[in-house]
Amino acid sequence: MTSPGREDRPRCFQDVILRLQAHWAASGCAILQPYDMEVGAGTFHPATTLRSLGPRHWAAAYVQPSRRPTDGRYGENPNRLQHYYQYQVIIKPSPPDLQELYLDSLRAIGLDPLRHDIRFVEDDWESPTLGAWGLGWEVWCDGMEVSQFTYFQQVGGHDCHPVSGELTYGLERLAMYVLGVEHVMDMPFNDPDAPIPLTYGDVFRDAERQYSRWNFEVADTDMLLQHFRDAEAECARILAAPLEDAAGRAIPMPLPAYDQAIKASHLFNLLDARGVISVTERQAYIGRVRALTKACADAWVAAEGAAA
């Protein structure tokens, strides 16, 4: 692939996203849409967590809106948001040229590795709530982390076989760098020459302010705790249901159960942002979420095994 010249740089946030979509579509990935639930990171999307388990091959890419309530700064911090976008690529088995495919994606958004200093710096990835770990790198561009690059080794306590390669781009940070913007709210969202040019702030400033206040001050913690317990119970109930439905068809339900695990995880993040979870309790909550994802992964693996 030829490197685009300077003039070929993206001009706005959505252009970065569209180029990544085009690149990964051309590389053979199914371009999925975001999962319709609140998650802390693109990894939580069942297209990554559950699909990385079992023998079936898989290749997908998608944008995932991600929520980290504790990172809210009322829209004032130039780099921190409680709601942001991740771009996620997952390919199983990891192809031998995954690094090259990834570097081509950087070229596609105007980062030429002969002009910018791209580095693969050791970073072992681990998600305590997903019971998952892998080895890989954080990818640096001119000293800034622009992506996580991971070869999944275990998810939900299960060995990954074959191994998935996972890429996660922090879209705002990456785009701000490519576009040369200092404050996220100043970043052009659509074409700056469009009849109605919009910045990231035009789209999200109000949301950041409002959610920051709700996350930190208003959210009803008793209700959130109750929701957490409800999600936990429903997850267990779904998984405990008999394998066969009323008509006698074998239909295991790891996907609906996993939705409840995602819910519990996000509720935990909200409770954390409200500051009602002590250091000791924290570990216990993480353990409870992990137990849920593990149970869902078990059910998924069992279903995959039965289907294979």
Partner: peptide, 13 residues
Amino acid sequence: MRWGGGSLRWVRP
């Protein structure tokens, strides 16, 4: 680690 569909282990592929 392992990578792809293989079972060989190395520090990275």
